[in-house]
Design a protein around this nucleic acid. Structure first.
Lengths: 140, 140
DNA sequence: GCTTGACCTCGAGTGCGCTCCAGCACGTTC
DNA sequence: GAACGTGCTGGAGCGCACTCGAGGTCAAGC
């Protein structure tokens, strides 16, 4: 390890620091999403600040919709070392594209929702039902 | 109903027109997400173009993360008629805010992912492992 | 040396949103 | 009148990502 001694802590502290439950952290490890977790003499998991950063990355990938299977694959690449650098970059770039595409979908959906909101606004203001903004009310 | 006779069709056609499985459409109806579906003499569901529009709206709400329970609530408001116009507008506006917030989360996550991609790029180009962009590689 | 609290493993349970299947009915075509 | 395509109902099953609980271990403090 490099130079200065890293402060280490156990799972309760990691849980507090990154806002995930201890159950979730252990489950992530069991899924192969947290490599290199050492144990103390009592068999308890020991972490340091690098793990906080790693879990932060995992969380960002998760909330942007990467599946656990893909995250596992990415983690395996990391474990394999430098030979997988290009593949890791490719994976993240690909994921980035997928997220941008989803945002674009959201924007399209919002456009429709906005038209519907405008439709309600006009109806409320005028007291007269306006023309349908593509998606009609009450489909009978 | 209003003026001109609407062309009507059955569930297979609706499925083809809006790209959902017949199973999914029946399930949506059972969940209270498609009000006012009439039957022909043989007991088969009959739809018209208004249903296509309605399902389009439902799909947009779904893909932007509205839960089925919320969609059911919204549908009930629509069925109740004009007295719920303001509440419907409120629901959609609230949902809109939630979607915008999620997009903002995505953008924050993408910022981290971009730093990580840049990190890999630099590492690949220079052959030297650069400083960590917050989330470190290999947490051992 | 006993209590306390944090941690351990293993496995079952949960909520969501479908998806699929069995078994049956209808109605058009040959 | 038999076959075929399309539709019906009710209910079981599924994939995902956790979440929780039972039952036990360990070590620090009193």
């Amino acid at each position: 390890m490099s130079g200065a001694r890293q402060p280490s802590f156990r799972i309760g502290e990691l849980s507090a620091r990154c806002g995930r439950s201890v159950h979730a952290i252990r489950w992530y490890e069991a899924q192969g999403l947290i490599p290199g977790v050492l144990r103390d003499t009592g068999g308890r998991r020991v972490y340091n600040t690098r793990h906080v950063g790693w879990l932060t990355l995992m969380e960002r990938l998760r909330i942007t919709g990467m599946s656990v299977a893909q995250m596992r694959h990415y983690t395996q690449l990391v474990v394999q070392g430098r030979s997988t650098l290009a593949e890791r970059r490719r994976m993240l770039a690909e994921h980035r594209r997928a997220v941008e595409a989803r945002i674009a979908d959201y924007r399209r959906a919002l456009a429709l929702i906005d038209r519907k909101i405008g439709f309600y606004e006009e109806w409320i203001d005028s007291g007269q039902r306006p023309d349908d903004p593509i998606a009609p009310d009450k489909p009978h």
